[in-house]
Nucleic acid binder design. Structure first.
Lengths: 226, 226
DNA sequence: GGGCGGCATCGTCCTTCGTCGGTGGTCCCG
DNA sequence: CGGGACCACCGACGAAGGACGATGCCGCCC
């Protein structure tokens, strides 16, 4: 994250020469940004990065040989031959949930759709160079929907609520069960005989209206007690 | 999400009169935005929303009586007395992970830090009115780090990987187990005898080096196969 | 074709789980 | 004080789970 001064060095990765030249023109016209190289496929990225040391890589997804997501994963996870790996901004036309997530998990700091106005692309490049992040509004929307995930959230809410009807000891047993322990292991951990563990387990089953220990374990997980 | 034409109607919520008037001046000077009201605390929001029908609420977090997050939760979850509830953009000075998440889960479509340039605030207001979303770059960064969650992610990666060494049938059994089924139920579901289910379970236990069915169920969950 | 390895299927046998009943302890209420 | 409700604890026993071995089926490779 140690950027010094001077313009942000950018590497363009896109299989379409027209797109590349448009981006180059646009970015070189912008303040504080300079295009230092271009590559026409994901497989050329590592080499270009080593040679040119860009601060930011502007990466297309769809490319013939190695796609942009794979290239991003490789780039961000490799042993960094001298300094941090460059930041990656993915630039694509399509906005699919799994692609966004995969890109961000791979370490991308930006995800822009190709309808992004030129000024914003330049701005995104400068931003990610400082360690911050920028997404297209529609992508932001998707990401928010993903983390908000009402389904998961109220699963957890309900699970927590149900666990409150348990006694302390029962809850401890339930949590230990959530780690996958056998009755014997739980007994050892909580200093009680196997018979007692069973009694607690039975009580939990009855109170929560469940059929077997697996369901207790899953519930404990949903409640986030593991 | 049915916005018609005309300027976006905005309600300001902030306990500081100075901040409100600054925002009002700034927004009324901007294209396509009009401030239709101001409130000095979260408790006044429902009333103002009913009276003024804003498209967007610009909400501070820290307020004396009812804070902005609580107000957002109430606003977005109530039975919508006529049309969709307005979109909420949270506007605050501090960028804490739990606050961001809570706001977004409550239904906020924007989260801006108070150092956001005026033009961007107006822009964010127009954007969220159309159903998209906007976050400050630093907030985006946090959110990305949250979803990327290396810990969870490679738990899942490893779980998936380990499950590949199973045969199809074994994997089916593992998934059914992940739903909390007994051997008898699994057998009925997959048309095989209890003895066969047990054989598959045993095989899975051995291949994955686990001790009991609970651990299989948890692994299946980590892998996201439920 | 014979032999070999992997898979799905099942029955047998021991281990673990879960149910049932019971003890002692605390607290509270009439 | 006597009873009732709740809790933690335990033993015994039938039911489910899990280990093991066996069978038949396929595809593969000398």
């Amino acid at each position: 994250m140690a950027r010094v001064s001077g313009p942000v060095k950018v590497l363009l990765v896109d299989d379409d020469a027209l797109v590349r030249s448009a981006l180059k023109m646009m970015l070189d016209g912008a303040e504080g940004v300079r295009v230092v190289g271009e590559v026409d496929d994901g497989d050329g990225v590592p080499r270009a990065v080593d040679d040119l040391r860009p601060d930011v890589v502007l990466m297309d997804i769809r490319m013939p040989r190695v796609d942009g997501l794979t290239a991003t994963e490789r780039l961000r996870s490799r042993p960094a031959p001298g300094g941090d790996p460059p930041q990656v901004v993915v630039l694509t036309t399509l906005n699919a949930d799994d692609q966004v997530l995969r890109a961000l998990r791979a370490g991308a700091a930006g995800f822009l759709l190709k309808d992004t106005p030129p000024a914003d692309i330049a701005r995104a490049v400068r931003l990610v160079a400082t360690g911050e992040a920028m997404l297209s509004p529609a992508v932001t929307r998707r990401l928010i929907d993903h983390v908000a995930d009402p389904a998961r959230d109220d699963r957890r809410g309900r699970a927590e609520e149900r666990l409150t009807e348990l006694t302390d000891r029962e809850r401890e047993v339930a949590v230990a069960l959530g780690r996958g322990g056998s009755n014997a292991e739980i007994g050892a951990e909580l200093h009680m005989s196997v018979a007692t563990v069973k009694a607690h387990v039975s009580s939990v089953l009855q109170k929560l209206d469940l059929n077997n220990r697996v369901q207790i374990a899953l519930l404990a997980h949903d409640a986030g007690l593991v």
